[in-house]
Amino acid sequence: MTVTSDDSARFAEYAHPERLVSTEWLAEHLHDEGLVVVESDEDVLLYETGHIPGAVKIDWHLDLNDPVQRDYVDGEGFARLMGERGISRDSTVIIYGDKSNWWAAYALWVFTLFGHEDVRLLDGGRAKWEAEGREYTTEVPTRVKTDYPVVERQDEAIRAFKDDVLLHFGKPLIDVRSPEEYSGERTTAPAYPEESALRAGHIPTAVSVPWGRAAAEDGTFRSRAELEALYFDEAGIVPDDEVVAYCRIGERSSHTWFVLTHLLGLEKVRNYDGSWTEWGSAVRVPIVTGSEPGEDPRR
């Protein structure tokens, strides 16, 4: 069972247009067989206040993170979660959420760690669906449990660890946090001081491209030309670069990972989910403060 792609002209310019669907498309295809809508928000109660009809909820804290170790759930945990949500290995999963799909992109990235093939984002997320006055319900769907296979998580291709970053110098690093976090004026995003690090600043040579610059006012992604101007012209990345993106815990950089991988077509982008909460507390890793990327520490 294959759910069609959204062939809207405005997605055609992206490298992988099949990774996005519009609100119009979703409204028409909500009841397609094989399609499951997933809401993933920062606010754990937002789904309960009303969601797209038929959507199930996946919470990054409670469902995607291992409750003890700082890691994602393992293959068994993911299979259990998918089974409970009525998602099959061949389901088309459409994810949407609050904050310009920031957490939705994070969930999509975790689905990708498990190689779930057909996973897409609703362009504009929750805010656009709501702004257009589309249908919401508080009814939680009862989906038939599925038997999702236990698939081993494959971290190598799209996930970077601290040691990988230490070996990455000389290749592009993107810091997607706010300018104040980048320069070292603060260790946490404005309004997010609860997950702090002991030191402030950024990883040497990382260029600053705050994640939100890839999103338009209405939460949709910016055009390909705008994205190329941002990441290629301004940040100096070239299409066959190996790139590592990071933020504070890896959520905002998932948004950037999505943009670089699926919209601009870069093939070697990894998300460093340890991000600043690990780097800024690690012993003897190089740190640069101020608004300049700084020197390659190997020199």
């Binding site: 606010d43 754990v44 937002l46 309960e48 609050d98």
Partner: peptide, 9 residues
Amino acid sequence: PKEAPTTRG
């Protein structure tokens, strides 16, 4: 804001 029900709670 109503978009932050947890905080409102």
